[in-house]
Every structure is written in structure tokens, then in C-alpha cells.
Design a protein around this nucleic acid. Structure first.
Lengths: 195, 195
DNA sequence: TTAATTTGCTAACGACTGTTAGGCAAGCGA
DNA sequence: TCGCTTGCCTAACAGTCGTTAGCAAATTAA
């Protein structure tokens, strides 16, 4: 009846699945490969999980929750749009660097979700972007942000694309901490590369 | 003996394959799906191509050539690093917008290349980034660019990530032309979002 | 010790994978 | 009309896919 012990093995499977989905892709990863990586036969996995889809679903929606958490902190801890933007970047970067593998699966493999999870995922992602746009809009209206062509949609894409590329090159053993990376990204984002 | 007629059909197959690889991914696209999209049986494809790998290879390396072409123009038409950067962005955006589907395959599906093409591809990509970094370095040394932490590696990632996210949202029927997008990106990149 | 739970196994299912072999019909230049 | 090429077909190959059934060993709880 203890839920912690069964969670252990399931967590191991999820971690290994995350790693494999990340570097081979969901579709190119077989349950037999996943099992082999855990030193087990493929059929044995089904004592712990119900399907391959469930693994992808768990990874994608857990990360979605974390990104939403970071967004909500940014929205609720300050009234200053620029401080909120800083908080958003720091939170976003912390999620990305805490589990880069899961982040990459979240960013790149979500399209392999089956319905109805796929639609739910897309809706959540859109809701996230809407709120980021609103945050940028507030900054532009207050005069503390200068959006290109006054277009918060464009600015939001620019912001998120700059952040979301991070897990493709981030190495956890690198010299920079998550906060240092976030600081650099914030500076670069706000000031640009112009001399 | 006329090489143009057989090329026609092969080009159709390549275009359809590009579209399918883009929205399902290489591994999740079967030759039977590709054939069905062309109104043909799977086996018939092999009169025109030699393998599924060949399709991926052609797409990835053609795009690599185009990106390198844009880079070379940027390197050779001006001595001003900042003008070269502008040219690079415009060229890069033009490639991305001219064939967004192929661009997304290039950016997202290259990892499914088989050896030795995979290693060759990675090497080319690295060579590309090295040259972009050199371009940014020159700008920083000349004082016309201000790189975050004076790190051209970081700046290059920032630049390319901002550009490479474009094909995920770009719609060819949108209001913005490729040059308008490139101008906005250039402005945003150089000036940032700071008010 | 007994009972229940967890974890894994072998074997197999039906479906699907990329690809090949071999043939047939239409359109072509000679 | 002949022969050749192009384009597509059916049939099949050997292998892999996710998943289920049924059973056994190990671990844990009472």
C-alpha cells in the first residue's frame, strides 16, 4: 500500500525514457531499447506503466506544470512588468536547466502525444503564450519595454525562442550556473547586441 | 535520357516527404504514408529513390548548402562586421522563409541521418557556427557589437536560436515579407527589448 | 508462517516497417 | 512496328513494433 516504493521503479523508468526520447526522439525509441537500458525485458515495463504514451504524457505535462508555475510567480510577485520579465526568465531558465532532458522532450516531442492529450497540450501552450504576451504588453504600455513594431506577439516569440534553445547546448557541468545564464540572457534580451 | 523528366517526379516525392517529415517527424513517417500522399503504392517510390535515408539526406544537405551560401555572401560583400551581420540575418531569414518545411526538417530531423552522413552534417554545422562566431568576434573587437560577457559563443547561440525558431511560426501567407521579418529581427537583436 | 505485493520472465499476438523481385501497361523514338 | 524507357503494380521478405497472457521468484506485511 506504500505508494513510495512502487513510485521508485516508475521514476527510474521515466528518467531513462526521458533520456532516450531526448536523444533518439519518441518515435525512434522502442520499448525494447528502453527496457534494455534498464536491464530488463520489454514486457516487464508494463508492470509499472500502462503504455509508451503514458510516459510521454507524464513528461510533457509535468514540465508544462513547472513552466506555468514559473509564470505565475512572475505574475504575482511584482507589479513592475520589467521585474516580472526578469522573474519569468529566471524561472524559465531554472526549469530548463534543472532537467534539460525533460525540457527537450517537452519542447520537441509533444507532437507525438495522442488525442485528446495533444489538443489539451496545445491549448495549454497557447494559454501560456497569451499570458507572456500580456506581460510584455503591460511593459510596453508602461514605457519600460520597447517592443519591435510594438508587436507583443513578435516579441514573445523572440523571447521564448531565445530561451527554449537553451537545453540543446546547456551542459549541467558547465561553468555557468542557472542564475548566471539567466542574467546573461536577461541582459542580452533587454540591451541587444548593438555597440 | 532526358534528365529533366525523371527529376520532376523525384522532386514531387521530395516535396511531399519534406512536408510529412516536418509535421510527423522522420521516424514517424512511413514510406506507405508518403506513397499514399502521392497516390501511389510504397514500392513504386523505389523506382525514383534508393531509400528513405536518401530523402532525408537530400533535404538536410541542400539546406546546409543554402545556409552556407548566405553566410559566404555575408562574409565577402562587406568589411563592416555589422553590415555583414545584417546580411547574414537577411540571408538566413530568406532561406528559412523560402522553404519553411525543409528548414524545419533541417533543424529538427538531422539527427536521424545515418553514418557517415550524420558526422559530416555535424561537422558542417560546427563549421558554420565557428564562422558566425568569428564574424561576431570581429564586430566586438571593432567596437560595433557589444557581446554579453564578451562571449561570442554565447552571442552566436543567442542569434541562431532567435532565427531558427522562425519556421515554427512563420506562415507564408502572413502579412510580413521575408525582408520585413529580417528587419524586425535585426532591430530586435541589436537593440533589445529594453525601453 | 502465511498472504499479498512487487518485479520480472518467456512466449506470442497482430500489425507495421523498409525494401526487393518480377511483371505489366503506356508512351516514346527509330 | 519494334524496342526501350518510365512508372506503377502485386506479392512478399525478414524484421521490428507496442502490447498482452500467464507464470514464477523475490520481497514485504501481518
Amino acid at each position: 500500500m506504500a505508494p513510495t516504493v512502487p513510485e521508485k521503479r516508475k521514476a527510474q523508468i521515466r528518467r531513462q525514457a526521458t533520456a532516450l526520447f531526448q536523444d533518439r526522439g519518441f518515435a525512434a525509441t522502442s520499448m525494447r531499447e528502453l527496457a534494455a537500458a534498464l536491464g530488463v525485458e520489454a514486457a516487464s515495463l508494463y508492470s509499472h506503466i500502462s503504455s509508451k504514451q503514458e510516459l510521454l504524457h507524464d513528461i510533457c505535462f509535468r514540465l508544462a506544470d513547472e513552466f506555468f508555475g514559473a509564470l505565475e510567480i512572475a505574475e504575482h510577485t511584482t507589479n513592475s512588468p520589467i521585474d516580472a520579465l526578469r522573474l519569468l526568465i529566471h524561472g524559465h531558465v531554472r526549469v530548463l536547466t534543472t532537467d534539460p532532458a525533460a525540457s527537450q522532450v517537452f519542447l520537441a516531442e509533444w507532437r507525438h502525444l495522442a488525442e485528446p492529450a495533444l489538443t489539451a497540450f496545445i491549448d495549454r501552450r497557447e494559454a501560456y503564450e497569451v499570458r507572456v504576451r500580456a506581460l510584455l504588453r503591460r511593459g510596453a504600455d508602461a514605457g519600460t519595454l520597447r517592443l519591435p513594431a510594438n508587436d507583443e506577439r513578435f516579441a514573445a516569440l523572440w523571447l521564448l525562442s531565445g530561451l527554449n534553445w537553451l537545453p540543446t547546448w546547456y551542459k549541467p557541468d558547465g561553468k555557468l550556473t542557472a542564475d548566471e545564464i539567466a542574467e546573461r540572457l536577461t541582459t542580452t534580451l533587454l540591451q541587444g547586441l548593438g555597440g
